[in-house]
Nucleic acid binder design. Structure first.
Lengths: 213, 213
DNA sequence: CAATGTGAATTTGTTCACAGCC
DNA sequence: GGCTGTGAACAAATTCACATTG
């Protein structure tokens, strides 16, 4: 067990291993080797072992890893051995879709508040089954406190993103998932991860255009 | 101008620079330095210059870069000096949101077909303004040919993703954007990029849990 | 003896620092 | 003088290869 700085790529892969282990567990597979995991998620076996080695020794030499145990360990490391409450700002198409996205709930992520300053949207019910109603941004602080929210999601247009980020920060959130295609600035103790859908498409068109392997 | 293998991170950043340049251009800013760009998107100035250097010499020493020109160059490099047609499989919440997502169109990406095998969805109109109607997967080949489609988007649940990927490949697509939280296997000449929303959240919870800077 | 865990080797990516040029 | 472009230095991440162990 080392305690060096851990590459972000390692964390990303850990999340992928974690879900792969969940799949294996559902199929009632009990033991898995680094080679199996590697094949399953498309990385090298050495990579799998190195990634895990940052956090401890989870396997048995000559045997492999116990699926259930390793699944628990990875979830613990990722901090998802519990559930997390999130709020979402921006009740447009993307925001609405994210509210309904079942995968989030399956992994323990719950959207407990939706905010938008568009008067035509306030008061509307987004997800009937979850009793989610769009509220004005002023009510954000209240919800964050009451529902113990740790994560904010930005799903507004680019030009409003920075302003929303500022509000999220002012309300004490330390983790932001940003879907606006723009770089948002936050203090050092706040983490932002941006998911920029167009960027991913442009990586594809780059490769379609420059047809090297 | 070198012709080494280009890091994926460079391409990703190029896409980000490109959009930042668009912003500057809208503000009628004519010249920009690597320091300006770096500040604007949150990387180092040397990084900006190195990234651009993979593709040519676009600046003027002592001056900087011409915004309009560099914007055009980056778009050309990324292959977005033209528009691209895409099809989408999976008319659920996420699929619907992606169809309505205006940012795609703004960057020249057009969804020209939506497919789903769920009988309750077939025939429904997704985007009235675009005249998009959900069709069964069998009609995919037809649309791909007729509309000159190059990119396929997977927005179905994890368990159906591989099957859908196989169909996209069989229909000749070489680029796939996958939103299913699972690794899909495709032949070497097909590019897949996966956008896994939960993975990004788990990177955040990792950091929230291990509170090292 | 099969598969982990890990130091060492290698590859890849980033930053530095400065020569070159407008 | 100021900012680009780039080789060289550095840092980070990945792969290799093998000693270790149940």
């Amino acid at each position: 067990m080392k305690s060096l700085r851990i590459p972000e790529a390692t964390i990303t892969r850990l999340s992928i291993y974690s879900r792969y282990l969940e799949q294996l567990d559902k199929k009632e597979i009990e033991t898995v080797s680094s080679v199996d995991i590697a094949k399953g998620v498309g990385v090298s076996p050495a990579q799998v072992r190195k990634d895990l080695a940052y956090f401890g020794e989870f396997g048995t030499r000559g045997v492999g890893y116990n699926v259930k145990d390793l699944m628990r360990y990875t979830k613990r490391i990722l901090g998802i051995n519990r559930s997390w409450n999130m709020i979402l700002v921006g009740a447009g198409n993307l925001g609405t879709a994210l509210c309904m996205y079942r995968e989030f709930r399956a992994r323990g992520f719950h959207i407990v508040g939706v905010f938008d300053n568009d008067l035509s949207k306030i008061g509307k019910t987004i997800d009937r089954s979850m009793d989610l109603e769009v509220k004005p941004l002023e009510e954000m602080g209240e919800v964050i406190k009451k529902e113990n929210v740790d994560i904010g999601i930005i799903a507004v247009p680019a030009k409003a993103a920075q302003e929303v980020a500022d509000i999220l920060v002012k309300n004490g959130l330390k983790a932001i998932l940003n879907f606006a295609p723009v770089t948002v600035n936050v203090p050092d103790d706040v983490r932002v991860r941006t998911i920029d859908l167009s960027v991913k498409l442009e990586v594809l068109t780059f490769h379609l255009t420059f047809n090297e392997l």
